[in-house]
Design a protein around this nucleic acid. Sequence first.
RNA 1: GCCGGGAUAGCUCAGAGGUAGAGCAGCUCACUCGUAAUGAGCAGGUCAAGAGUUCGACUCUCUUUCCCGGCUCCA
Length: 640
Amino acid sequence: MSVRVLYREKEREMEPGISMTDAVKAFDKKLARKAIVARIDGKLVDMNTPITQDVDIEILTADTPEGLEILRHSTSHIMAAAVKRLFPDVQVTIGPSIENGFYYDFDRDEPFTPEDLPKIEKEIKKIIKENHSFEKQILTVDDAIKMFRDMGETYKVELIEDLVKNEKVETVSVYKSGDFVDLCRGPHIPSTSKIKSYKLLDVAGAYWRGDEKNKMLQRIYGTAFNNKEELDQHLKNLAEAKRRDHRKLGKELDLFSFQDDGGPGLAYWHPNGGLIRHIIETFWKEEHLKREYDLVYTPHIARAHLWETSGHLDFYRENMYSPLEIDGQEYILKPMNCPFHILIYKTKIHSYRDLPLRWAELGTVYRYERSGVLHGLLRVRGFTQDDAHIFCTPDQLKEEMINCVKFAIFIIESFGFSEYDIFLATRPVKFAGTSQEWDTAEDTLRKALNEQELPFTIDEGGAVFYGPKIDIKLKDALGRHWQGPTIQFDFNLSKKFDVNYIGADGQEHRCFMVHRALMGSLERFFGCLVEHYGGAFPAWLSPVQVMVLPIADRHIEYADQVAKQLKNENFRAKVDKRREKTGFKIREAQIQKVPYMLIIGDNEIEEQKIAVRERKQGDLGAMDIHRLIDILRERVEKKN
RNA sequence: GCCGGGAUAGCUCAGAGGUAGAGCAGCUCACUCGUAAUGAGCAGGUCAAGAGUUCGACUCUCUUUCCCGGCUCCA
């Protein structure tokens, strides 16, 4: 008796029961050493698994996404083993791999401190050196429960009991590496020695099962990579992200602030940030007008009654501020703009000939956010949405969706985001409308995306209760993901407000309504932009596009002349007239990330030229001012 | 909201149960200077706020506010 092992189209007869590792060794020794996990019939299996029947093996190393994920998952187990050795009183809970790393949650009365991390890292190193293999065992549920109960691991017992309840399992798998045993579905790396490059990063509190009603556990975050270079690169990226933190840059570039006296989550836009916002808003408005949107403006507060009609007081109450009393009437600060746009719509009877109506507003809304979630400009309590509502007939929906998606992509590409992922979020468990309505709407959205040949992912059940939506997630210069444009279909509000139009048949019909925000909120989008550009805004957005630097006082007159000429061409130019050395002035302009610096000295005056320094390219040498104007014009035009 | 860590000059940060320190920025003066920091001098603080312990608190304790890392939630 033997089994046939197929590997990369080569085939060998082998002893039944031989491990994957040993089998692969016969084909490729080097690869067997690097193997993290095997894939057989599309399923990932441990390298330690014995082969009992004919197989076609595919080997995954830590170079592959799947291999890396398993390496990280296994590293989290080893970290748990190390923690158990150092702190025998802890209980282990769960420890998955996550994007860029892993974590493990422990139940321990005393929190871990950052000082514990090096100690744990050292213990991990020891365990790796001891080279324990990961051995999988299948236990009956009863045996497993008994084992974990004897070990005092009550969370594991709870997990198993839930598996029995929810998935009706009769057996569970546990992995043993050295003296550490953990409940785990696997698969895992063959042995601890496969872990080469890892680092523990952070400690934090986290609720058991992510539910704030449960006990707070102590989480340790870490990461692992295929090799030291990749780990170092990752750590470098983390440091770069820190350098680009919009809160830090916001202060350095004097863009915005938050005021203790003003209250948390309420942003103050300083002149520099304000100017950039103005440019963004102007661009936004012009592009909307080009696309036959109308601009509307609505108040910040409305009677509580309106929010009752809209349903916000039912489903959004915990995010809304308490009512203000005005003349004995209750008013509430708006958390959304939609009811206001509907009120404008309802000032008239609309014919199907009027539709679609596209109404856009930079609408400032206020939402109560729990204190712990506020985060710079990315999560605030008062913000301006670049909102729009489209009222249309069912027939028009698809085209409106197509236009929204096109518009969204145009906007994000204008801000230098060339990579993005599109998601179609479908019906959640709780929803307004009928399943039939949802099916039709989802189908329309799907068609809209398909017709433009845009690849997208279905986010099953990811929609809000009132309708399916298309979300676009941006990838920034550091490869991080950001929530971008969102285009949401709404079954709910048009019903609540009875939003209708008169059709060709003379009858009233219910409007279709689409909410959409392309940037989301100006605050969040701006925070994201700051990080994406690392504060070095492209010329069209830079508060100061050109800093003119006269070398000595006698050069000021010409410098002023140059600045004036640039201003006449609608560029933002300033002259640094301080009696400082040129190097000093350059340094300051450079730190302020001004795109162009013009050095003006005797030579320039004599030749009637300017010496141009670009913030990234450095010294570009002397040129005629018209040459610079052409360059600037082109950069502003191209938004790069 | 919860767990943990913070708050010292405009900024970045050091310090410590006996009354506060640096660098940068600011102001003044000198230097008129060529591609990332000229030098000197001056000024700058209710050590987040309130209460308590103490002969004495910026330091220890408590409360509050705000910030940071997470959890949950989200534009």
